[in-house]
């Protein structure tokens, strides 16, 4: 986890240096704002990973000598198949088209998004459809 943390903190440090340099060289606002945004993108997860990587024992996948036996067991939950991503996608599609063809498309759009949100939740509690 240490390398992952360094990668993200490295993103933050790089953009900090670039952003500060860019500001004092150009005094151009939009570019500086975007570069500082990228600092936050690296800093927020990166500092969490860094904090956490100091406190955890290295996982089997962090060690050169990690063996498959160490990693045996539950990895996580992987839903087999689900219709709800499709429903949510169509809902967002409808909402997006509402911006072009008329606000009435928001109604079916929101209906599909809410249905999908409920569907996702119920499905997670049940543990997948297959």
């Amino acid at each position: 986890m240490k390398i992952e943390a360094r990668l993200l903190v490295g993103v933050a440090l790089f953009f900090l240096v670039t952003g500060v340099g860019y500001w004092f060289w150009s005094y151009e606002q939009s570019g500086t704002v975007m570069l500082i945004g990228a600092v936050l993108l690296g800093l927020v997860p990166g500092s969490y990973y860094l904090w956490w990587s100091q406190r955890m024992t290295p996982r089997p996948e962090d060690r050169d000598d990690g063996t498959l036996a160490e990693g045996a067991g539950v990895i996580g939950a992987f839903p087999g198949s689900s219709i709800w991503p499709f429903v949510m996608g169509m809902g967002l599609f409808s909402c997006a088209l509402a911006a072009v063809f008329g606000l009435w498309l928001l109604a079916p759009g929101f209906a599909a998004v809410f249905a999908a949100a409920i569907g996702y939740t119920v499905e997670s509690r049940r543990g997948g459809t297959i």
Binding site: A72, V74, I130
Partner: peptide, 10 residues
């Protein structure tokens, strides 16, 4: 239902 994925041993 496939809720849990177990990593198989080598």
């Amino acid at each position: 239902m496939t809720l849990l994925q177990h990593r198989p041993p080598a």
